[in-house]
């Protein structure tokens, strides 16, 4: 019979559509997202742990992951260069930990403008275009440290806080949490804060001077990994392990050894592995259309490890990386 022309065209179109539809349904899931992880450093234990977490998430979500970071934790320019490399590589998402709150902002804005999803972990950057933020709740970490001092059984507290640069947001938040918890406990407390550069030797010397100037100090707090190591070594070298309650951040192996010798009373273990993992996971989920509230930090939990229970199964897990 005679078929009208539009009829025939419709039929052919339909067949094509059907075939391509089948093809499309088969092909779509194989696309891999290109994710860059730009850290503050590639050598420290903290970041290596974050990278292993990121790699696990990479395999789990079938992503293409590029990990990079500057040689020193001050080189924000190298970080910016990496961001532009990621843009040139048509990255879909970047996991970023900022060395400089202000100096990395422009590069991050440029990346976000290029359509790249940016997930900040651990350290913030001054950009409104970040899609998600993941890291430690520093105020809560400070409060956890304070709880050790409060439970130490002193009638009144004389506290030495070894904090890092005044401009560092993380450090200020930790100290603020610590002070707030002490105030709320109602125990009389005198607090001396020193701000030192993040270097173990400097921290050790400064802490020694503080301890010598104020021998009445019964609690010492080191608010990041190098400062905790420095302060703990100062306590150990002055032989104050029995009389001073030393509280440190992070799980540097020297701190752990000093804890075994009784010089460190408590450590607040962050979870860099979780940061790396959740950072990459967030990238994947953002790219799949999920949305995060960038103004709310997604908390990676910290674990308080006490000297007495440092080899309990839970503490072992918090203190010692499996890798």
């Amino acid at each position: 019979m005679k078929m009208s022309k539009p009829f025939r065209i419709c039929l052919v179109l339909l067949l094509c559509l059907t075939l391509t539809g089948c093809q499309a349904a088969r092909v779509s899931p194989s696309r891999q997202y290109n994710v860059w992880f730009i850290a503050k450093s590639t050598s420290t234990g903290f970041w290596r742990s974050a990278f292993s977490g990121a790699n696990v998430a990479k395999s789990e979500y079938n992503l293409q992951l590029t990990i990079c970071g500057p040689d020193t934790e001050e080189d924000y320019e190298a970080q910016n260069a990496f961001i532009y490399d990621a843009i040139a590589d048509h990255a879909d998402a970047i996991v970023f930990s900022s060395i400089s709150y202000t100096e990395n902002a422009a590069a991050i804005d440029a990346a976000a403008d290029a359509g790249i999803k940016v997930v900040v972990i651990d350290s913030n950057v001054n950009s409104k275009k970040v899609s998600a933020r993941i890291g430690t709740d520093n105020v809560a970490a400070g409060k956890k440290a304070a709880s050790v001092a409060i439970d130490a059984g002193y009638d009144s507290l004389v506290i030495g806080i070894v904090n890092f640069d005044l401009t560092s947001r993380n450090g200020q938040e930790r100290e603020e949490g610590f002070r707030t918890a002490i105030k709320e406990s109602g125990i009389g407390a005198e607090i001396y804060t020193i701000n030192v550069v993040t270097d173990i030797e400097v921290a050790k010397e400064e802490t020694k001077q503080l301890l010598l100037a104020h021998p009445e100090i019964n609690v010492i707090v080191g608010l990041n990994e190098p400062l905790a190591v420095g302060a703990a070594e100062a306590v150990a070298e002055l032989g104050l392990g029995d009389s001073v309650t030393m509280i440190g951040m992070d799980t540097n192996v020297r701190c752990i050894d000093l804890m075994r010798t009784g010089n460190v009373s408590a450590l607040i273990a962050q979870n860099p592995y979780a940061m790396g993992y959740m950072g990459v996971e967030a990238c994947y989920e953002l790219l799949e259309g999920a949305s995060y509230d960038p103004d709310v930090w997604i908390d990676t939990p910290t674990i308080l490890v006490l000297e007495e229970t440092m080899f309990s199964p839970e503490s072992q897990r918090a203190l010692f990386s499996f890798e």
Partner: peptide
Amino acid sequence: PQQQLIYSDL
């Protein structure tokens, strides 16, 4: 294979 993930409560 994901021991650290389990240890990290993830």
